[in-house]
Simulated assay, not measured.
Amino acid sequence: MNSKINISIDGHAGCGKGTLAKHLAKSLNYSYFDTGAIYRALALLMMNNKLGFTENFNYLNKIKIEFKYNETNDFFELYINDELAEYLIKTDAVSKKASEISKTNEVNNFVTNLLQKIASEKGNVVFGRDTGTKVLPNAELKIYMITNPEVRAKRVFEELKNKNINISYDEVLRNIKENDIWDLTNAVSPIVKADDSIILDNTNMTKEEQGKLALTWAKGVISAL
């Protein structure tokens, strides 16, 4: 299996895109890219420099962003210029800044161009917003994940409870439904299913089942090259 492909994974928040991307990247020995984490990395850099995107453009254009697999915690961690930054991008301030800049066309275009340059060499799994339509429109395998909102809310609620975050299931569900509406209707970057993507409805599937199915799809595409 010497041939490699690019894989894009789209879908609403809480569908398990990151879990599936990790499984495929590990199974195929592919590079892993989380677009949301990249936006947070840019937000962190802009906050540290205390400059706007335009003033930071030349600096950001030289930044090396990559994800390295950590076997100890079974997670792909973000590095900026070979320095671990995974835990620096998870503060509320960085998340707020990332949400702000992700609504601008210039930052969206920057991230798209960055990932397209990386993906010019095959062997990547990219998940997040617009991956199958704008970021990797020529990806050989495009997966669009859907999950019942109530199921997503239950998953997120359990994760937050395990982290001792005090929030009710009803509040989580309300937030998910509100985010879904914004994702579909916002003017800058609404979620759109690529016409040639495969729908993966994992509402009634385990992580293992969805991983096995998606890996079968990937191997089928690769073997047909």
Rank of each mutant, 00 (worst) to 15 (best):
E150Q: 12
D10P: 12
G211F: 07
N56L: 11
L114W: 02
K207M: 14
N73C: 07
L42T: 06
S31D: 04
D180L: 12
L20W: 04
A37I: 05
N186P: 11
Y32D: 05
K17S: 06
Y69E: 06
F67T: 05
L225V: 14
K161A: 14
H23Q: 03
N138A: 09
I191S: 09
E159C: 04
Q116W: 00
A214M: 07
I199K: 02
T72D: 09
V111Y: 00
E159N: 14
Y32Q: 04
N70A: 07
Y69L: 08
S120L: 10
G11N: 05
V126Y: 08
T147C: 15
D82V: 05
K142D: 13
F157K: 03
D183L: 13
A214H: 02
I63P: 04
V94H: 06
I9D: 01
G132L: 13
H23F: 12
G18L: 04
T112L: 07
D196T: 08
K17Y: 03
M1P: 05
L213I: 14
L173M: 02
K90P: 06
D195S: 14
N186R: 15
F33H: 08
V172G: 13
R152G: 09
Y144E: 10
P190A: 06
D201K: 10
M47W: 00
N56H: 03
F157C: 11
F110V: 11
L84N: 14
L28C: 06
V156S: 00
K177D: 01
D130V: 13
S189A: 15
D196F: 09
Q210D: 12
F67K: 04
D92Y: 05
V151G: 11
K4M: 11
A41Y: 00
D170F: 05
Y32W: 01
N164C: 10
V172M: 05
I63V: 15
L184F: 10
